[in-house]
Every structure is written in structure tokens, then in C-alpha cells.
């Protein structure tokens, strides 16, 4: 099965699913960060204008810090998110799913200079397209991943209906399928919902109202009696 998710086992025996973020959202996040940096420097340039050489020195120093250290600082201090990453709902994590700290954040951001080669992140884009985890060179060096932080879209809660015990014992996976159907049913057309429910004929039986019966079983499974 082709997927953008990576599963990681923790020492506690818990499986974590990391949903990797690819070049397009990352490029958008970079664009937002870039716009913020340019805007900040523009305002600063106006502000330091009257201070002559001293102002120029302050401007150049700020530019340097903003360009080289600001993204790393954001990622180390802000749950791995720069403002652009926050806007896109993505964040940097270590390969093992732990939050990034200063060394990793610094490494991956200093290596942006390499990713930038030959110009405009050509190498970064190429590596991201080739690497199976969408890693650019900085990520490869720092052992970091960029993942989605916001939750995957989910259906609403199971719509209430009179509970109906399933005639057969169901495995956990099958129970989950029934629940998933009930949660998603309000978003489907009624014909499609009926069609889907009829697929589970051995469970719901023949005849009309299959979707309704399946939702009732879901109500039983979530414990409404």
C-alpha cells in the first residue's frame, strides 16, 4: 500500500503514525516565512534609516540573524514550527518522532545553504522528490522529518439511533469498519450509504434499510443501550 505515513515503534511498544509533509506544503510554508522576513527587514530598513552607518550595521546584523538563526530558533523553541509551518499545520520532528532541539534545528537550517545550491533550493527540491521521506539535504544531515501536526479529517460522532446488537461477533477491525461507516454516513448521499451498507449483507441481512440497521449496530458498539 502506497502511503505518505511512516509508522514508528516506541520503546514502550506504542506505534506512532507520522504523516510526512511533501515539497508543496513545505514550499508554501517557506514562502510565508520568506514574506515575513522580507516584511520585517523592510520595516527595519525604514526604521534605521535616520541612524546612518550605525543603522546600517544594525540592519545587516539583524538580516544575518533573521536569515540564519531565526528559523532554527523557531523550530527549537516553538514545537518545531516556524510561522509558515504553523500556518500550513506542519512541524519538524526528529526521525524517532521526538521534538527537535537546538542541535538538529541548527544543523538543518544551516544546511539550507547547501539545499539552496545551485540556486533557489534546486538541490533541496531534487532531494525531496527522490527521498522516500521527503527529506532535503538538511533533514538528512540532522535526521529530521517534516510532518503534519493537525489531526486527519474525521467524520462526526455516530448519529444516535436505537441500538441493535450485531447477530455475529465482530473483530476489532470489523467493529471499526461499522463505526467508520456510521460516522461517515451523514456525509454520504443516501443512495451511496445504502449501497455501502448492502455490501455488508451477511451482517445486516437482505432488504431495504440496510444503512439504518448498520447505524443502529454502530450505536450498540459504542455502548448506547
Amino acid at each position: 500500500m502506497l502511503d505518505t505515513a511512516r509508522r514508528i515503534g516506541t520503546p514502550e511498544g506504542i506505534e506512532l503514525t507520522l504523516r510526512l509533509a511533501g515539497p508543496v506544503p513545505r514550499a508554501l510554508a517557506w514562502l510565508i516565512d520568506f514574506a515575513i522576513r522580507v516584511a520585517a527587514l523592510f520595516v527595519l530598513a525604514i526604521a534605521v534609516g535616520p541612524f546612518g552607518n550605525l543603522g546600517q550595521a544594525a540592519f545587516l546584523l539583524t538580516w544575518f540573524l533573521l536569515e540564519w538563526l531565526f528559523p532554527a530558533w523557531c523550530e527549537a523553541q516553538w514545537n518545531g514550527q516556524t510561522p509558515g509551518k504553523k500556518a500550513l499545520g506542519i512541524a519538524v520532528l526528529n526521525d524517532d518522532g521526538t521534538p527537535v532541539r537546538w542541535p538538529a534545528a541548527l544543523a538543518r537550517n544551516l544546511l539550507r545553504a547547501v539545499d539552496f545550491l545551485p540556486i533557489f533550493y534546486g538541490f533541496g527540491l531534487a532531494t525531496m522528490l527522490i527521498n522516500r521521506d521527503f527529506k532535503r539535504l538538511g533533514d538528512l544531515a540532522a535526521n529530521t522529518l517534516v510532518v503534519y501536526r493537525d489531526a486527519a479529517p474525521r467524520g462526526s460522532a455516530v448519529p444516535p439511533a436505537e441500538p441493535l446488537a450485531p447477530p455475529l461477533a465482530l473483530s476489532v477491525v470489523e467493529q471499526r469498519a461499522v463505526l467508520e461507516f456510521a460516522e461517515r454516513a451523514p456525509g454520504l448521499t443516501s443512495e451511496r450509504a445504502e449501497e455501502l451498507a448492502e455490501l455488508a449483507q451477511p451482517l445486516v441481512g437482505a432488504g431495504t434499510g440496510a444503512a439504518r440497521r448498520l447505524v443502529r449496530m454502530a450505536n450498540f458498539l459504542v455502548g448506547r443501550r
Binding site: 505518505t4 515539497p23 508543496v24
Partner: peptide
Amino acid sequence: VGVALRPRQPWEAVDLGFVMARQW
């Protein structure tokens, strides 16, 4: 179907497209 069919955020779907292009 050869891809994981879970509901995704739109950007995740775009990423899946890049993975598909790489795979094939």
C-alpha cells in the same frame, strides 16, 4: 487499489500524488 485510502487533508493528498509519481 494500491494506495492507502484513508481520508487525508488536501496537502497530504498532494504529497500522495508525488509519492505515486515516484513509485511509478
